[in-house]
C-alpha cells in the first residue's frame, strides 16, 4: 500500500515536473517564430499533415507563429538533411518520409542524419502499406498473385525511393511474380492502372482509398494498420526471414507523418513542443478536419515514437545485407 502510494506520489511529482518544464519551455515560445519544414512540395499527404500539425501546434503554443516551409528534393533527403542540420534551438522542426529509414539502414552517403538522435515530437498518423490491384487485372486474392504464371507489372517511383525499396524487397523475399516498372511519380501509377498497363502497386493505403472506393481497384493484402477488410500480409506468409522484413515495412508505415527536430533541442523546449503537439492531436476541430481530408489522426508521442524508430533501425545483419543486395541487383 505504502509502496503504491509512493509510486503515485512519484508519478505525480514527475508529471508535475514535466509540466513545469513544459511551462518553462512554453514561455520561451512567446513572440517566437517556428519554422516547420515539409520535405515535399505543396499537396499530398506530408504537406497536408504538416500544415495541420503546424496550424494546431501554433494554437497551443501561445504567442508563437508557425511558418510552413516546403523544402522538396531528392526524395525527402533535402528536407530531412536540412532539419537535422538546423540549429537545435527548438525553432525548427518538420516532417519527412519515414522511408528514409531505409537510407540509414543501407548507410547511403546522401543521408546526413541519424534518426535515433533526432528530437522526436510525435507522429500524427500512420500509413499502412497495401497491395493495390487494378480492377481489370485477373488477380482477386493474394493466392491469385502467387499463382500468376507470367510476371505482372507493378509500378514504383524512381529507383531508390521508399516505394521502390519496399517493392523490391517484398518481391525478392516472397518470390513474387512481379515485374517492376520504375518512374511512376505522384498519381501516375493510378492512371496507368486504369489504362491497364500496370496490374498493381505497393502503396500507402490512404492514397489508394478513394481509388478503390471509386471501383477502380482492390486491395489484396495490407501491411500494418487495423483495417479489417483486407488480410494482413504477415498472416499470409510463413517464412521467418520474410516476416522480419514485413515488420520493417510495417514499422515504417506506423511512424509515417512524423514531426521531429534536430538533435539536442533543450529539454524544456522539447517538452513544450511535445505538450503542444499532444494538445493539437486532441483538438476536436483538428480531428474533424483530418477526418474530412481522409487523413485521420492516429497520434503517437515523443519517446514512444523514438522507441519505434530505434526498433525499426535495429535490424539483423542479414536483413541489412538483403536490403543492400536488393538495391544493388535489379
Amino acid at each position: 500500500m505504502k509502496f503504491k502510494l509512493g509510486m503515485a506520489a512519484l508519478t505525480a511529482v514527475t508529471v508535475a515536473a514535466a509540466g513545469a518544464q513544459a511551462q518553462q519551455g512554453a514561455d520561451f515560445y512567446k513572440g517566437k517564430t517556428v519554422n516547420y519544414i515539409v520535405a515535399t512540395a505543396p499537396g499530398g499527404g506530408y504537406d497536408t499533415y504538416g500544415r495541420l500539425v503546424a496550424e494546431y501546434m501554433q494554437k497551443y503554443l501561445l504567442g508563437s507563429t508557425f511558418i510552413v516551409k516546403n523544402m522538396p528534393g531528392a526524395g525527402h533527403l533535402v528536407g530531412a538533411n536540412a532539419i537535422y542540420a538546423s540549429r537545435p534551438d527548438g525553432l525548427t522542426i518538420g516532417t519527412f518520409n519515414t522511408g528514409l529509414l531505409y537510407n540509414q539502414l543501407m548507410q547511403l552517403p546522401a543521408a546526413k542524419f541519424d534518426l535515433t538522435k533526432m528530437s522526436w515530437v510525435g507522429k500524427a498518423g500512420s500509413d499502412p502499406r497495401v497491395f493495390a490491384i487494378a480492377a481489370g487485372a485477373p488477380i482477386k486474392t493474394w493466392q491469385d498473385l502467387l499463382d500468376q504464371k507470367q510476371p505482372v507489372n507493378f509500378a514504383t517511383a524512381g529507383v531508390g525511393s521508399a516505394s521502390y525499396v519496399e517493392t523490391i524487397i517484398l518481391t525478392k523475399v516472397l518470390n513474387l511474380p512481379i515485374k517492376m516498372l520504375t518512374g511512376y511519380n505522384g498519381t501516375e501509377d493510378m492512371l496507368a492502372m486504369r489504362r491497364g498497363e500496370i496490374a498493381g502497386s505497393i502503396a500507402s493505403r490512404s492514397s489508394y482509398d478513394s481509388f478503390v472506393a471509386n471501383g477502380y481497384g482492390r486491395f489484396i493484402a495490407q501491411i500494418g494498420g487495423d483495417n479489417k477488410d483486407v488480410p494482413q500480409l504477415a498472416s499470409l506468409v510463413k517464412d521467418e526471414k520474410a516476416k522480419s522484413l514485413i515488420s520493417l515495412v510495417q514499422s515504417q508505415g506506423d511512424i509515417a507523418r512524423l514531426t521531429a527536430g534536430p538533435p539536442d533541442i533543450p529539454a524544456d523546449r522539447l517538452a513544450a513542443l511535445r505538450a503542444a503537439f499532444k494538445s493539437a492531436m486532441e483538438d476536436k476541430e483538428a480531428q474533424e478536419k483530418a477526418e474530412k481530408l481522409g487523413r485521420p489522426l492516429e497520434p503517437g508521442y515523443g519517446d514512444d515514437v523514438l522507441k519505434q524508430i530505434k526498433d525499426a533501425l535495429n535490424q539483423s545483419p542479414e536483413t541489412i545485407a538483403l536490403l543492400k543486395e536488393a538495391m544493388s541487383k535489379k
Partner: peptide
C-alpha cells in the same frame, strides 16, 4: 476520376475534400 493530373490540381483536390 479523383486522380489529379498536376501538383496544382492535387492541392485543389485536397481543398475540395
Amino acid at each position: 476520376f479523383g486522380i489529379p493530373g498536376s501538383s496544382g490540381m492535387a492541392v485543389l483536390m485536397g481543398a475540395f475534400l
